[in-house]
Amino acid sequence: MIVDARGYGCPKPVLMAEEALSKITEGGIEILVDNEASANNLKRFAAKNNFYSDVIKEENFWCVRIVKGYVCEIPAEEYKEKKPGKDLFLVIATDTIGKEEELGRILMKAYFETMKAYKELPDAIFFLNTGVKITTVDNEILPIIKEIEEMGVEIFTCGTCLKFFNLESELKVGFRGTTNHLVEGIKEFKKTVWVG
């Protein structure tokens, strides 16, 4: 079932989803919304009710899919824990892969593009040293990182590095991070991959 909530502001799309889901005992619905705030609210709503949800970003709207009922075989807590997973922590400490810099940047872009296309995503990415250029002023890779973030990957950029390169006001995706994130990340995640 598709619920077209485009044109409505908060909290109407959530109420429309709630009503649609109340009419089915199990199954999925798709809610179309034209503002990111409503997409985020629908994710909160689904998590609260232990429904599975994902968000697909289309050109000028968001499609939020919510599934009710089918997750009954997986205990809710286990399910919730899986969402902000702690499997793979990716550290990008450079804006180029390998020695030849121009080639290195092409490879970096290709790396993220492939990661996105095959949905082989880490759970968090931490950018540091020259890697912070990717989350600030790099117009080629930045859009890919933004999409990867929308797919649920947490993005952090080293605050000290931003300051060093005078890029503090340029951060365009994710959050500022500190060495705490790095230390905690390496400790908590099952696997850390360091590039650069």
Binding site: P11, A37, K43
Partner: peptide, 17 residues
Amino acid sequence: MGMIPEGSHLNQKFCRQ
């Protein structure tokens, strides 16, 4: 429950850098 006004989401987006 998802009862968050759009302005609050926008604030978060604007501030996070």
